[in-house]
Design a protein around this nucleic acid. Structure first.
Lengths: 144, 144
DNA sequence: TATCATTTTGAGACAGCTTATCAATTTCAA
DNA sequence: TTGAAATTGATAAGCTGTCTCAAAATGATA
């Protein structure tokens, strides 16, 4: 029954504590559901959780996912008219190649790019927590 | 009076010709305004053009910017709840270092990263038109 | 240049996604 | 246990962007 996501739970509690926020049943519930995903929309999570908790409100899902973003557990990404919430803890960070022709998304990782990002950050006195890299263009099929 | 953006104008005419579309006063007007920007939202362009053309409708701006996307002159990018239209002919991408402590934004460019992005794209059969790279973290002051 | 089928426009209605509102409930420090 | 403060759920409201449609503009053709 106990969650396997102890580290993330601690991170959330830490954030809550630092901001005079409270740990609620809904927040625990949504966190556990969220951590099982790689990325998900609020709407999708709403329907998914409705099976076990029919009275969990959509607004609460949105609020909570945005809270996770503040806490550094999630990252919002806007796609067309929808927002997807990425699970930051999911196997490192993956970047995205996005085809503007067919909306196909290809995920990739590139250590060399990550290393150079780190370098840029250090040069500017920054410590990176997360990043977002999206390459927009046309995939081989959409190029005609 | 004549536009300096001859090449883009030709590209638009070419697209129009191939799709049984017509060249209108509004399309010329919006193209010239658009090409002066690096990126802009439909709303911003609406207000900008309202000064000289009070009766240019917002729907027309949206339709025309989407047309530019189809013609390969523009590229839509979703940013928060808004859509920004990038001027594809504008080269200088600047990427961003964003401090989550004080919201300070530092712009940077890194040719090596750009080169690696290109490499990743090619490996996946993509042709990049634009990209977006944002590094989130803490600046030297906010690190405590 | 006049004709006219076709496309485009402008204005507002409409739709989808997200946030704001607010009374009722829950949390948690004392 | 108590009570101030935060949170929730339901729904209204807000924001972007698209659709509708009558009127106007375009451009191929004569």
């Amino acid at each position: 029954m106990a969650s396997k996501h102890v580290k993330e739970m601690e991170a959330l509690k830490d954030h809550l504590g630092k901001h005079q926020l409270k740990l609620t049943r809904q927040r625990e519930l949504i966190l556990n559901a969220f951590l099982r995903q790689e990325h998900i929309t609020a709407e999708a999570m709403y329907h998914q959780l409705a099976k076990s908790d029919p009275h969990l409100g959509l607004a609460t899902i949105y609020r909570t996912l945005n809270l996770f973003c503040d806490a550094g557990l999630a990252q919002a990404r806007h796609f067309g008219s929808q927002t997807k919430y990425d699970n930051v803890s999911h196997k490192g960070h993956h970047d995205h190649l996005i085809c503007t022709g067919c909306d196909q998304i290809v995920e990739f990782e590139n250590e060399e790019i990550e290393r150079l990002q780190e370098e840029v950050a250090i040069r500017n006195g920054f410590i990176i927590k997360t990043h977002r890299l999206e390459l927009y263009g046309l995939c081989s099929r959409c190029r005609h």
